[in-house]
């Protein structure tokens, strides 16, 4: 399997001189098998360039599958700019976690409401299909076996373990660690005290994540914050590289990829983060890479 990063930034796109090397577009990753099956994970602004590439390669109607971690703007904003959607006959299947499945169509349709975008979803030539995913309920899409994993993020989010070609990788974004804050479906102006039930829920979520990641070759992980930033915003729903290393170590993940970079982190800062955590990972025998736009990774036995 191969993974290609089209957007690695969190929160919002950041153009400019400070982001030319790591990239300024938001969450979007493409993965493909040797036989040519493709999955798209998250539809952030990186999806525009991905769409243009797919369109160049095959300017014919295709069936695309898009797994969404959640529907915050930075994970869906690229969808209306995905050029294959404007080829009649194209099919786009969208998979997402939602409390009510019938809402998904409205939520995705909502981003192309007249107030926000010149063309409403119903008028886009591609045919859209919406599927609800549930943590732990596995599904097969083409040559991929996909396992959704519950994550700790405002209003809920899911990660995905993706198996294919005899190897596996996991997309773990967006998520807070599983210690101080349990994200639910209301606004947090700061960390709220945890009840006994909350602690149980956090421990269960963490256990399930570690279990699902067991033996995964590569984990792409939300490491938005540096430790001092996390200490100020523990209720924002994102992790640090240290927290990601801890989970990967426990699950026996071979390689960790830092992802969902804070929009305020410049290329120079990212260089320092990359060097520091490469060294820290090495202590634990985990290869820690820092994702950048355009990075392609081979996953699995054939890569090792």
């Amino acid at each position: 399997m191969q993974i290609t990063f089209w957007g690695v930034r969190g929160s919002y796109p950041v153009p400019g001189a400070a982001t030319v090397r790591y990239g300024g577009q938001t969450s979007c990753v493409e993965t493909s098998t040797a036989s040519g099956d493709t999955l798209i994970v998250d539809a952030g602004t990186g999806m525009r360039a991905l769409g243009n590439k797919l369109f160049r390669e095959a300017p014919a109607p295709e069936h695309y599958h898009v797994l969404l971690s959640h529907v915050h703007w930075d994970h869906i904003q690229g969808l209306p700019f995905f050029s294959p959607a404007y080829i009649p006959g194209t099919k786009i299947s969208v998979y997402a976690l939602l409390t009510a499945a019938d809402e998904l169509h409205q939520v995705i349709g909502g981003i192309t409401r007249h107030e926000f975008f010149p063309m409403p979803l119903e008028a886009v030539p591609a045919q859209f299909e919406f599927h609800q995913v549930e943590p732990g309920v596995e599904l097969d899409i083409g040559g991929f076996h996909v396992t959704p994993i519950a994550l700790n993020h405002p209003f809920g989010s899911v990660g995905y373990r993706i198996d294919g070609d005899g190897s596996s990788w996991a997309y773990v974004s967006d998520t807070a660690p599983f210690t101080e804050v349990l994200h639910k479906q209301h606004f947090l102006s700061g960390p709220e005290p945890l009840s006994a039930d909350d602690r149980v829920a956090l421990a269960a979520m963490r256990d399930a994540l570690v279990r699902r990641l067991a033996g995964v070759d590569t984990a792409v992980y939300d490491t938005h914050f540096l430790p001092d930033e996390y200490a100020r915003f523990p209720h924002y729903g994102h992790s640090t590289p240290d927290q990601a290393i801890e989970i990967c170590l426990e699950a026996g993940v071979r390689r960790l990829v830092l992802y969902h970079h804070a929009p305020t982190h410049s290329d120079e800062q990212m260089d320092r983060i990359a060097a520091e955590y490469l060294a820290r990972g090495a202590i634990h025998n985990i290869e820690v890479l820092t994702s950048f736009e355009g990075m392609t990774l081979e996953v699995g036995p054939e890569a090792t």
């Binding site: 915050h72 926000f116 405002p154």
Partner: peptide, 21 residues
């Protein structure tokens, strides 16, 4: 209503204009 919709809990952890301090 439009800006409120932009910050709806689906799309934004701000969960509504009323949460802008």
């Amino acid at each position: 209503a439009t800006l409120q919709n932009q910050l709806s809990p689906h799309y934004s952890p701000l969960n509504g204009l009323e949460n802008l301090a």
